[in-house]
Design a protein around this nucleic acid. Sequence first.
DNA 1: CTGAAAGCGCTTACAG
DNA 2: CTGAAAGCGCTTACAG
Lengths: 335, 335
Amino acid sequence: MKITIKDVAKAAGVSPSTVSRALHDNPRISEEMRKQIKKIAQEMQFHPNQMARSLVSRRSRIIGVVFPGEVGESMNHSFYPSVLQGLGHVAGARRYHMLLGTGAEGDSIAEAVHQLSDSGYAEGLIVLAAEAVPAAHTAGLPVVTLGHPANAENGYYVDNDNVAAGQAATRYLLERGHKRVALLGYDPQFMVTADRRKGYQQALEQAGLPCREADVVPIRYLENTTDEGKLRSLFERPDRPTGVVCMDDAQAIALCHMLVDMGLSVPGDVSLISFNDTPAGRLNNPPLTSINVDPYQLGQKAMELIIRLVKHPETPPTGLTIPFAIMERDSVRTL
Amino acid sequence: MKITIKDVAKAAGVSPSTVSRALHDNPRISEEMRKQIKKIAQEMQFHPNQMARSLVSRRSRIIGVVFPGEVGESMNHSFYPSVLQGLGHVAGARRYHMLLGTGAEGDSIAEAVHQLSDSGYAEGLIVLAAEAVPAAHTAGLPVVTLGHPANAENGYYVDNDNVAAGQAATRYLLERGHKRVALLGYDPQFMVTADRRKGYQQALEQAGLPCREADVVPIRYLENTTDEGKLRSLFERPDRPTGVVCMDDAQAIALCHMLVDMGLSVPGDVSLISFNDTPAGRLNNPPLTSINVDPYQLGQKAMELIIRLVKHPETPPTGLTIPFAIMERDSVRTL
DNA sequence: CTGAAAGCGCTTACAG
DNA sequence: CTGAAAGCGCTTACAG
């Protein structure tokens, strides 16, 4: 039923070897033979069986991709879709495929990695999280992570310089006359926010400003009412922050709503700068000044790196840093 | 280097056939032998080569998934991430993998389908769009689409009853005293919006209300200023609509901004009901009354259907309808 | 209950 | 320039 290389060989009156070579543009085949065979293969709608091909070549042209959290969950973040787009474009251009780390409900990222490497299909893995991936789990597959792992020297990764970004965001506010700026969304569990916090502190120090414990609000989402209470009280104080650096547009938007609800105006009373430059942030009122971390390029570079890596496993550890840009809009006021 | 079934056989002092059978829990192997072999395999960290396995079994346990538009692009829509989550959960539970339709910049959905089926890895395809997929492109692979194809009788698909949904949304407004309701976001290119429009018209007719051409605004996004102009003029008229059905929360949010900008209040002057029940819609001020089409379940059912289909290709054409629900919030006022 | 053999569909030295 | 043969790593009738 399914047509094989033998069928083509028979139809062309040659051996399977010759067909194989013709299809691969092996130079040791006469020009006309090659054309002839290709034409026949085309007519017969022959598609070489990838399984067989991969079995001998040891190359599947498949890269496994694992997302943090549950599959799709992280997708809601606008950051990941852009990353995926970057990954997809270079994968497509290089004729590679992406295999998704699926996983039953509640599976951890380690399990997804495990499952993907065990599948035996992927030649390499892209892990969209900086958490160290236990080498034992990757079954020897090369891995590139998005975000630098704890021991950056030994890893393959693509990342922003998040301490520089945190510093830049903070400085942006300081340079516009803000003396008390808060940091919203710090989560010690995530390297990204830890790095940005570091930059935040540096900027404060360099400006000779104190770094108050109460000013960094270590929450991730505003859903939690306890946390919202903490936030509210921060802005109820007479010496409230006049500027805040938010880890994500979504937080900034929620904060906006809260402030307006409290009778405070943005940027009239409080200026906001955040991260990720999302569509929602652009649609916000006021449109958010936000740092674009170039997720598309992060994705591109990650895919390029893993492809290089599967082809040349001896590639020395590599860390790529993608530049970020402050997108100036209307949520920051100069004092 | 990479350890094979032969190595395990040698270590266990049996033939490869026996190892294979033990690993597959073939009943014709003694209990102790099975355990023994499994233990050894485990210790040796043996992972059977999937390529070889698939080559003989003709089963890859891989389902190809193609998204509309460019890879990742559609992900920004919150609808697709949820679908993906549904797909991923059942795939994971059934030990299936998902292969993404990648594609170079600007590739069409047809090309993605083509590329995926040509890859030879996928046993079946899920196409997240209702556009008819030319059979010629699928190379005989079973396909399930999200959204009913033009000729629903012959297809395999999962969908909402979008005419009922359009009708329900419209009726929701009519029942609350609205006499003139507009429809925003109609795009003849998409079956979904065409179906909803049909439902909108039915609701109007059933209420004995006229269906004015000017009241259906056939645009997709509000980015386009010309379109915004058209919209504005619609609401500048004294007999402006008091209610509008939006195809998506994002449009409703943008419309909200526009109305506020025009000095109109939501829901004071204009009531809004939209589709997709997104996080952004919930965070909007006011929170949006929106129809949840249950994308997660759409994904689950689609994956279940394709898996059934690859196992039993003789399954007769099947169309699954997923129920929707109106999530009542604060963007609709009773007149 | 277990093994030897054939085969899945391709590729690639090895001969010629 | 082309073909016959061996082999990629597994599975599965076929014997015993």
